[in-house]
Design a protein around this nucleic acid. Structure first.
Lengths: 182, 182
DNA sequence: TATTGTTATACTCTATAACTATA
DNA sequence: TATAGTTATAGAGTATAACAATA
């Protein structure tokens, strides 16, 4: 029927297992973190994402909605909805920026700051538990390296450079991927 | 108007920045990986997820659809749609398992295996570029540690243990989170 | 005119439930 | 009865586009 041949059954072991793929590893950690934090933060709107927004707001470094949305890799409209919920829960406030009244400064309320203190403890336990497979003396170095990679990955230039490295590769050219079903 | 007080502006620096949060770091890396691989694999259905499925299929270790779905953290119905697309693209095949005819064994076609070889190169470049901020001698140890954490995070028992550590914390009890807007 | 934020809407992805077939 | 896979459908998340306010 089909001219495409039979699958290549591995005679022994030809390549890496699924679990050896970088994408598998990073995805597994990300999913576990999100799921655990989701439960740890209870009814905080936006779950792990809401926690990060609250953390930034409490440090007074959240900046404008747009800036915050970009840092978290979400659309600015999504940030609007998320902040609606966090504000309704009394955790954060939108402050008009006197310097540029188009901007809204995102800050934590007193209640938000207090709530965050508890959340930090709980989320901290989640993190600790995720990393407790590593020998204690490795955790510091691991975090340092993870942070360095994250910082690198966040840069616009990084994705752009990948495009130059891979022939016929262009991030901006979305290959007009069809929807999965519909 | 409101009895909730003013936000706590940081007098100096009270806590970690957003970028210091584990959740920020892991999310940033995950997003960058997904985005870059999405472009790198071109028209492969399912993008980074499709790549992982194809990789598992080509090694003959994908097993049943359900097993594969669980390893990738997706619903079994989602796996059905994803495999529909990959099969339509001629990259994988569903083989009925003679031992238990309810199961479908997922295997790569010859075309799929050939395509995967190219994809591995391209995805490999993406990975290399993400990690090239680390000094060369650190990349191996970093991967080893990342894999260990991923393996640990994938275990059912890990999430369960987190529940015992955090007081009043239960993953299975989804706190009936309301939809974000609707 | 360009930008921030909002709103309405459409779209995409995911999950739920019902069904078939195997066991 | 229980499980793997499929299908239909509803639901949740996201993005697009049009708008108001400000620069």
């Amino acid at each position: 029927m089909s001219e495409r041949g039979v699958p290549a059954e591995p005679p022994e072991t030809r390549g890496p297992r699924l679990e050896d793929e970088f994408g598998y590893a990073i995805g597994a950690i990300f999913r576990a973190y999100v799921k655990a934090v989701e439960a740890a933060v209870g009814d905080v709107p936006g779950a792990s994402r809401g926690y990060l927004v609250l953390a930034a707001a409490a440090e007074g470094e959240a900046g404008s909605q747009r800036a915050l949305a970009e840092r978290l890799g979400v659309d600015r409209t999504v940030m609007t909805y998320l902040l609606d919920d966090l504000e309704r829960a009394g955790l954060v406030e939108r402050r008009p920026d006197p310097a540029d009244r188009r901007n809204r400064h995102i800050v934590a309320t007193e209640h938000g700051a207090k709530r965050l203190a508890e959340l930090r403890d709980r989320v901290g336990l989640v993190e600790e538990h995720l990393l407790d497979v590593l020998p204690e003396e490795s955790r510091g170095p691991f975090r340092t390296m993870l942070w360095a990679v994250a910082d690198h990955a966040s840069k616009e230039s990084t994705l752009a450079e990948v495009c130059r490295l891979v022939p016929g590769f262009d991030v901006s050219e979305a290959p007009s991927r069809p929807p999965r079903h519909g």
